[in-house]
Amino acid sequence: MQSEYSLSDVLERMYENQLALEAALMELTLHVEAHGHADVGNNVRGALETIGENSGHIKQGLARLSKLP
């Protein structure tokens, strides 16, 4: 049985936190943009793009880790 504090479990939870933060940032971005701060929205969208790009790599790494003995 896998420990709840195994490396793969901890990394999976960190990945889930990243997705949750990404969603929260997008909600805040939409709110900020709706109140006339497109420049701030653009800055945050740049950061969100990086998060999105990295999430694919993280997910692939987690899939590989889960296959290890």
Rank of each mutant, 00 (worst) to 15 (best):
T50C: 01
Q18H: 09
S55M: 07
A24Y: 12
N42A: 05
D9W: 07
N42F: 06
E12A: 07
I51H: 11
S66V: 03
I51G: 10
E16S: 12
G61L: 00
I58P: 02
G56I: 14
G36C: 01
L48R: 15
S55V: 00
G61T: 06
V40Y: 03
S6D: 02
M26R: 14
S55T: 01
N43A: 15
K59I: 06
V40K: 04
L25H: 14
R45E: 11
I51T: 13
A63V: 13
G46H: 10
E33T: 06
A34C: 00
L7F: 10
L62T: 09
E12R: 05
L68E: 12
G52D: 04
A24C: 10
L30R: 15
S55L: 03
V44M: 11
K67D: 15
G61W: 09
R64T: 08
L68I: 03
V10Q: 09
A47L: 12
Y15A: 11
T29N: 03
L25C: 11
E49N: 06
H37S: 11
S66K: 07
S66T: 14
S66A: 06
G36A: 07
K67T: 07
Q18N: 13
I58D: 09
V10E: 08
K59D: 04
E16R: 02
Q18I: 01
V10C: 05
Q60T: 12
D39I: 09
A34I: 00
M14S: 14
P69I: 00
H35M: 04
H31N: 13
G46R: 15
E27H: 15
H37M: 04
K67Q: 10
I51K: 13
L30Y: 11
A63T: 08
E53N: 14
I51V: 12
L11A: 06
D9Q: 02
E16M: 10
L65E: 00
A24K: 15
A63S: 13
A20H: 07
V10P: 02
A34S: 07
S55P: 02
V44F: 09
A63P: 05
E22Y: 12
L11S: 04
S55Y: 03
L62M: 03
E12L: 06
K59F: 04
L62I: 10
H35R: 02
S8V: 01
M14Q: 14
S6E: 01
